[in-house]
Computed example of a mutant assay.
Amino acid sequence: MTNEKPIADERAYRPAQPVVRKIDKADLRDALARGLADFNAMPTHLVFLCLIYPIVTLVAARTAAGYEVLPLVFPLFAGYTLIGPLVAIGMYELSRRREKGLDISRRHLFDVLRSPAIDAIVVLGIVLMGIYSAWLFAAQTIYELYFGSAVPASIAEFARQVFTTPSGWALIIAGCGVGFLFAVVVFTLSVLSFPLLLDRDVGVITAVTTSVRAVLANPTTMAMWGFIVVGALVIGSLPFFVGLAVVLPVLGHSTWHLYRKVVKS
């Protein structure tokens, strides 16, 4: 029988404002290596396949039933990065447990539901979902600005409009620009917020401000991390989203180790 303490007892009571360190590229490489090691020790790809494919199937079926949702397919999946920190919270918990030498079976993915920080996690999760909804609204508005409210006649016609017309290229530029702003905001607010909430007895405001301070203290390195995350998600999405079942948990575990490097224990 393993000797485990409740999550409430494991969370350390430290000063209200955590100390933020400077990090460099070597720290990013080490965080990724440690994240991959965590995934190899605690593979959760089947869990993520069960989460990813019902969503993919639902969107595909809805698109086939009526092309009115076609303009939102890319924003739906691209905006997934906005709620990625919330989706990865189970990975943070598993990495935290492995770090402490506790049991790391997959059922502990859901231990966050018993965490004393669950209220703060829910609040921050609602904020991210709100931003995600705002992004979808913005994407729809941008599309209608260039193409009106007409429903695409087919997938081929929609692709022709987007990739071969001046309005389509303007749509791509405007959409990517606005999406980048949403991503920067979410990344800055949440890159370290959820790991900090799991690890310490702090509130939402302290978690968010610590994440913001970490990004401001390491602008270049954290920007590199953001591009690593985006690049990994794009690569993982290419083979029919199968790769995301590995990419998502590895990035989640790696983010926990990034948190350990940035926020002083």
Rank of each mutant, 00 (worst) to 15 (best):
R107W: 11
R107I: 10
L109P: 00
L109Y: 13
F110A: 12
F110N: 10
D111R: 07
D111I: 01
L113A: 13
L113N: 03
L113D: 01
R114T: 10
R114E: 09
S115Y: 09
S115N: 11
P116F: 05
I118K: 12
I118D: 02
V122K: 15
V122D: 09
V123I: 13
L124E: 11
G125K: 01
I126V: 15
V127A: 14
V127E: 09
I131P: 06
I131S: 02
Y132T: 03
Y132H: 09
S133G: 14
A134P: 07
L136H: 05
F137Q: 12
A138E: 07
A139P: 05
T141W: 14
I142D: 01
I142A: 00
Y143M: 03
E144L: 00
L145P: 00
L145C: 10
F147L: 04
F147S: 03
G148L: 05
S149Q: 14
S149V: 10
V151T: 15
V151M: 06
P152D: 01
P152K: 04
A153D: 15
A153G: 15
A153E: 15
S154H: 06
S154E: 07
S154Y: 05
I155L: 12
A156Y: 00
F158V: 00
A159P: 00
A159T: 12
A159V: 14
A159S: 12
R160Q: 13
Q161A: 15
F163D: 07
F163M: 12
T164H: 03
S167D: 15
A170F: 09
I173S: 08
A174S: 13
A174E: 11
G175E: 12
G175I: 07
C176W: 10
G177M: 04
G177C: 02
G177D: 02
G177K: 01
V178T: 11
V178E: 04
L181S: 08
L181G: 10
F182D: 06
A183H: 14
A183R: 14
A183K: 13
A183C: 00
V185E: 00
V185W: 06
V186D: 02
T188V: 13
T188A: 15
S190M: 07
V191S: 11
L192Y: 13
F194C: 03
P195K: 02
L196I: 10
L197Y: 06
L198R: 03
L198I: 11
D199T: 15
D201R: 14
D201C: 08
V202N: 09
V202G: 03
G203N: 08
G203Y: 01
V204F: 08
V204L: 12
V204W: 09
T206M: 07
A207V: 00
A207Q: 01
V208P: 05
V208L: 06
V208Y: 06
V208T: 09
T209S: 15
T209L: 11
T210P: 07
T210E: 07
S211F: 03
S211H: 04
V212C: 04
V212T: 06
V212F: 03
R213K: 12
R213Q: 10
A214I: 08
V215F: 14
V215H: 07
L216G: 01
A217T: 15
A217H: 12
N218M: 04
N218D: 06
P219L: 05
P219G: 07
P219D: 06
T221S: 09
M222R: 03
M222H: 04
M224G: 09
M224L: 14
W225H: 11
G226C: 06
